[in-house]
Design a protein around this nucleic acid. Structure first.
Lengths: 346, 346
DNA sequence: TTTCACAATGCAAACGATTGCGGAGAGTCG
DNA sequence: CGACTCTCCGCAATCGTTTGCATTGTGAAA
């Protein structure tokens, strides 16, 4: 609670003008109608008094809070740090503030109460970076006339805006890399199918294998129940049990890949030289583990920034009619490390 | 931008009462003065119309934005995820929203512009989780009458509130663990001295070594320039060059410890069996690297929650006089892994 | 019956900005 | 010199709440 802030009225009085004039002088767009000398004076007094407009008053009058909400599924996932940073940075540059909220992953309600809270806050827009149950929430927001953009994960049907990584392309990079090394019998450790990323990566896997003319029966893919080490271990164990002939595993995420490490070792084989593994996300410290995990790097910070740009575009357009639907996919890159090596000659 | 929200006036009209009565009925504290039947009616109509108060109007009138600012030094550091989550969760429970902002680490200005932006937003309080340059910003906020709490890092002199980990205790855990294993010649890879955490850990190291009656000449500590692998590598190289007799290194942070891994290997020695290493923070994936790094686990989520609690207390007290100064240190725990083993018998 | 207290509600002024509208003054043109 | 057009500025309403104060009505006390 600031002591006693200087208000527009103070500035106006000090400058000897009416508050409306002061307002117009301070505002970029209306400045043209006030005399340059007056403007100069008002600006000088304002900065001299340390005036800063009260956003609540402005928001009340203009019906824009200059605030966006950002809801994260599980904020502890290090992947979200860069996304948040990207959003916040470009939003801040445009004068918007970012309200953050965590939608607990274990909350089973389809409609998130934290989104309600954000709506009650009168946010001008919302960016959703949620693991699941994104769809209904997004449509509800759209219906309320609140521009919304999905980041990282998307929904297939409804035409809601989204910025995501190009999962098909990313998986393609992994497959190409393995094929270049000489692999032909490649398996896929998919992610949880309720996430769009898992679906995209699976689709990319099938597609790419087909393009290359490689066997891609359904028996070479096994789905992990969640993007974690333990489920990855289980899926890899099952897959290798069924298809012991595989020489390479493309995992839908780094942690699943690390689970696969354990499964491979359980079978008495060595990761890299005997069975190659690729991850996805290229998280920190991957180069320190043994063997260093080849992974797909996704430009998360840029993803956040792009999402913010898109949301800004939607928000400015929102005044008249339906905001546009913006979709973009960012291209990931390959970080090759020692977990991928030529297959053992058989 | 929501279509046309229902306002208090709508509720009042529908309920057949004056808006002031409706307001009082809706407000917990003033509810006592309005007739129960009226209250019931107003509440019913309100929920039926889907009324939710406009926080901007309320904030304008009451001069409280019900909003707190949170500024992070480098948001990409995975350590901050849990802290943010902790803050946001308990703030949300009390009806506060959390504005997040990143103070770029490379910004050399002593007074952060993002803090200015938050002040302009009229936040009711602020939690600072910054790497450095925290001091001036904190006292500036205090002078402005804005309650502020520091989290994770603190400043030594000024009496500003803070919630931090007990670094002395944490380092003590590491040292005790090593001594129990039989080590006596222990070195310390300190962090950048401009951070309070580095200072606290260094102090803890000296103190503990002294208590145990162990040699602790200054030659056994070397400071890394930053909490990263590369600086850690450099510091460890220098330290081992100077004191090749050391059998264990206590690092001020996990990444520094990982840098030490490389330095140790450069000297042709093996980490764990020949030179033990401990980290600090217990970040993810530490159990997957080779050898798994013994580390000190800090309850970061709880730290965020505690910070929020403290800030809430300060904010409620702020109405009358000086808000209280609250300081707490949370106790870390040890995660013992294979990077620490008995010293080689010499 | 008058008086008073008290409970319940209405009235209106804030809070700090934005903005449509109108008015004063100055300059231009016929 | 009058009419007109600009330019610049002030007036006042408004956004949606909260809240001190005035008002009404009702029952109890005198």
């Amino acid at each position: 609670m600031a002591k006693d802030r200087v208000t527009l009225r103070d500035v106006a009085r000090e400058a000897g003008v009416h508050v409306s004039t002061a307002s117009r002088a301070l505002n970029e767009e209306t400045r043209s109608v006030v005399h340059p000398a007056t403007t100069e004076k008002v600006l000088r007094i304002a900065s001299q008094l340390g005036y800063s407009p009260n956003p609540l008053a402005k928001g009340l009058r203009t019906n824009k809070s200059m605030t966006v909400g950002m809801v994260i599924s599980d904020i502890e996932n290090p992947l979200f740090g860069p996304i948040i940073a990207g959003v916040e940075a470009t939003m801040g540059r445009e004068g918007y503030s970012t309200l953050i909220a965590e939608a607990m992953a274990h909350d089973h309600a389809a409609l998130s109460p934290v989104i309600d809270a954000l709506i009650a806050r009168r946010v001008d827009g919302m960016v959703l970076a949620m693991a699941t149950r994104t769809g209904q929430n997004a449509i509800r927001l759209k219906r309320l006339g609140i521009p919304v953009i999905l980041v990282n994960r998307t929904v297939d049907d409804a035409d809601v805006s989204s910025i995501v990584g190009d999962d098909e392309h990313g998986i393609g990079l992994a497959v190409d890399h393995l094929v270049a090394l000489g692999h032909t019998r490649i398996g896929h450790l998919a992610g949880p199918m309720e996430t769009s990323t898992a679906a995209g990566r699976l689709k990319g896997f099938h597609q790419h294998m087909e393009n290359l003319g490689l066997a891609h029966e359904d028996t070479v893919v096994e789905s992990a129940e969640w993007y974690q080490i333990e489920p990855g271990y289980k899926a890899a164990t099952d897959l290798l049990e069924r298809r012991p002939d595989l020489t390479a595993l493309v995992a839908a995420n780094d942690l699943i890949a690390l689970g696969a490490y354990r499964a491979i070792r359980d079978r008495g084989m060595v990761v890299g030289t005997e069975v190659s593994v690729t991850g996805y996300n290229d998280m920190m410290l991957l180069d320190m583990i043994d063997p260093p995990l080849t992974s797909i790097r996704v430009p998360y910070r840029e993803m956040g920034a792009e999402a913010a740009e898109a949301l800004l575009e939607m928000m400015t357009a929102a005044d008249g009619e339906e905001p546009p639907t913006i979709k973009r996919r960012l291209l990931p890159t390959l970080s090759a490390r020692n977990s991928t090596q030529p297959p053992p000659d058989s």
